[in-house]
């Protein structure tokens, strides 16, 4: 298990998250927050980039092949 560090968030936000996850597969507020933050922050260098022309074209090629773009 990775080392853990406590952080503080507003209790109103924690309550909102509890509501959102109460029937979901997330086991805790911490797990949910970790998931969301990882999605946002992981590989943040890449994420700050926009797509290169080549990447955009590859995405569009796939969309065309699947019938989602002319």
């Amino acid at each position: 298990m990775q080392d853990r560090k406590e952080i503080e968030i507003p209790s109103t936000l924690a309550k909102k998250i509890e509501e959102r996850i109460k029937d979901a597969s997330f086991k805790s507020v911490s797990e949910y927050i970790t998931y969301v933050l990882q999605e946002i922050i992981e590989n943040s260098e890449d994420e700050e980039e926009t797509f290169s022309e080549e990447e955009e074209e590859k995405i569009k090629e796939r969309l065309r092949a699947l019938g989602y773009l002319d």
Partner: peptide, 22 residues
């Protein structure tokens, strides 16, 4: 839609997914 170059496309799909969530 036929065979996919998974090595090339998987990171791109992952990046697109993360980009849109962000």
């Amino acid at each position: 839609s036929g065979p996919i170059d998974r090595q090339a496309e998987k990171p791109l799909l992952d990046k697109l997914n993360r980009y849109i969530i962000r």
